[in-house]
């Protein structure tokens, strides 16, 4: 494997800028028989909370035009099981592990960060202040600059790991939130999480999700995500990990041109579980053929100023 695609996101070095998005790639270990996950820039694992979470009532997923809604509700095995059972497997697989953490309070976020700081094989933390599917915490931390910077600071103070803060598209002023988490010590921003959506079965007149509302992902949200990355890129100095409906390599280029320094591939993993490594191959070919590096593309959208 060449390092033609290697990227530096603040203190975090990745062999390439293609990361699988939290919630769409399990704990990574499920893919052992299908692909070499060490070829990925990183795996952002399913959001981990201090205690296991059962998740939301079914149905939890439904397909929508160009995308899907989910209301999983952060079902996960909890810190202990993840560290004891899953991390050893991920280390053996050579995966670059980005741990997505979720808490219902500043204290829970800080406690998770403190504990993961000592866990071997964790490359970075991704602080989830943007989940739309939980009653407490989640998106509520991500919609105002004050609460977003509070959580970021609580995590920053107790860990030496690179801290990525995952933003919600529902923030009132996303560039403002970006600046707030940057000032609070975030090393990078990942954006965006899902949009809250709803779908109704007109025959039964019932919502198609058990939790009524859920997070919209997939190509349907890509133009919104690209616009938001473009806006936040102009406001912050820390690297942005862009995501939202990336389904092929050309979509990755679009996010880079808008201002992303790396990307996450999410819903497309369900369409094709090997899509992320295929994108790595294509990115390598693209850069090799042109003699360029991914960093040469960041924010290079050409906009003609109107005089």
């Amino acid at each position: 494997m060449s390092d033609i695609l290697a990227v530096q996101l603040g203190p975090l070095r990745l062999v390439n800028p293609i990361i699988t998005a939290s919630g769409t790639f399990g704990y990574g270990v499920e893919y052992a028989d299908i692909m070499d996950v060490s070829r990925l820039g990183g795996i952002s694992v399913k959001g981990i909370s201090l205690e296991p979470r059962a998740g939301n009532p079914p149905p939890r997923v439904c397909e929508t035009p160009g995308g899907m809604l989910n209301s999983i509700g952060l079902a996960n095995i909890g810190y202990d099981a993840f560290v004891d059972r899953t991390m050893p497997v991920l280390r053996r697989m050579g995966a670059t592990v980005i741990v997505n953490i979720y808490g219902t309070s500043h204290d829970e976020f800080a406690e998770l960060a403190r504990r993961f700081d000592k866990v071997e094989g964790v490359a970075a933390l991704e602080v989830n202040i943007s989940c739309p599917n939980v009653k407490e915490g989640g998106i509520h931390f991500g919609v105002s600059g004050k609460s977003a910077s509070g959580v970021t600071r609580a995590v920053r103070e107790v860990t030496s790991l690179p801290v990525i803060v995952k933003l919600s598209p529902e923030a009132l002023d996303l560039p403002d939130i970006g600046k707030a988490v940057q000032d609070a010590g975030a090393d990078a921003i990942s954006m965006i999480n899902t949009f809250r959506g709803m779908s109704i079965d007109v025959e039964t007149r019932k919502p198609r999700l058990g939790a009524v509302m859920g997070g919209l992902s997939g190509p349907a949200i890509r133009p919104l995500a690209v616009r938001m990355v473009y806006q936040v890129f102009k406001a912050v100095n820390i690297p942005i990990i862009g995501m939202g409906g990336i389904a092929c390599f050309r979509d990755v280029l679009e996010f880079f041109l808008a201002g992303a320094s790396a990307v996450q591939v999410g819903t497309a993993n369900f369409t094709d579980p090997t899509i992320a490594v295929k994108i790595v191959d294509e990115f390598e070919e693209y850069c090799g053929a042109r003699g360029i590096h991914p960093a040469d593309l960041i924010g290079k959208v050409e906009i003609q100023e109107v005089k």
Binding site: G23, T24, F25, G26, E30, K46, A54, G55, N56, P57, P58, P59, R60, V61, C62, M68, N70, I72, A75, T267, N269, F270, P273
Partner: peptide
């Protein structure tokens, strides 16, 4: 059940069992 991944990843195909667990 409706499902997205088919391989235990997305946690979308939950059903409630007789013991009340997913």
């Amino acid at each position: 059940s409706p499902m997205a991944c088919g391989m235990g990843v997305c946690k979308g195909c939950a059903i409630l069992d007789a013991a009340g667990e997913y």
